[in-house]
Design a protein around this nucleic acid. Structure first.
Lengths: 124, 124
DNA sequence: GCCTTGGATCGAAAAACGTCAACATAGAGG
DNA sequence: CCTCTATGTTGACGTTTTTCGATCCAAGGC
């Protein structure tokens, strides 16, 4: 349930040194766009933050996530799948329930990528 | 050309303390999703990195961006508009040409939001 | 005034996406 | 084995996104 998705962050953790360090080539852009696209939906962002709020090593059962939305269970399942395919979260079944947790390395990679090299916070 | 978009980052720079600090409410999620969605396209990521590569205060003429893609000029113009509406870039017309630059504060906001609070880099 | 050139805007077509109802699957407990 | 509950999967539908050609606007040069 968590094999092929993990490879995504495994092989590319160091692929993109930074947004501004050099123009991205097509492959880098396509790979990063997949992850940002996963973040580009309000439901998925809320799901991710609900899971991440459990802290390092924390887990959340799907049965806690689904009732927080006015959406059907299959829809939530679909969004969780997209987050997982993006390498942002992973999951494990334990008995009847499935638990999800965040993969912090994936988030860090994006944060490093976005961090402006010499940003002068003031907006002039 | 750059009024209403700037308000987006102006009023919410401090809205979202961090992904993991607390579950996002619907408004926060919707607002952030708009920005991440803008980053969720390979063409826009490449455009942004091409502009950002000019460094702090750097500008790029559209006439330098368009020929780098196998896409029509209206399509590039459309993507630049989405990046601008997301508050990530801004532009100004000077004479015949239009120049774009990055708004570093917007990128920093996302980076801060994504930075895991106590990430243990190792993926275990 | 009239061209020419750089960009934005306007439909329209195709593809991708979000959503649901229906169904399938995996364990738990009889 | 059968049933019940918790999730994932499938197929369809309406909406949004991406892309283009055609057109329009702004500025410069004649």
């Amino acid at each position: 349930m968590s094999k092929q998705e993990l490879e995504v962050i495994g092989q590319d953790t160091a692929c993109c040194p930074g947004l501004a360090s050099a123009p991205l080539d097509e492959d880098q852009a396509a790979e990063l766009a997949k992850v940002f696209k996963a973040l580009g939906d309000p439901v998925r962002l809320r799901l991710l933050s609900m899971i991440a709020s459990r802290g390092e090593g924390g887990e959340v059962c799907v049965c806690e996530l689904t009732p927080a939305f006015d959406l059907s269970q299959p829809t939530i399942s679909h969004h969780l799948k997209l987050l997982r395919q993006a390498g942002l979260i992973d999951c494990e079944r334990r008995g009847t329930w499935v638990y999800y947790w965040v993969l912090p390395a994936a988030l860090d990679r994006l944060a490093v990528f976005l961090k402006a090299p010499t940003a002068v916070e003031a907006l002039a």
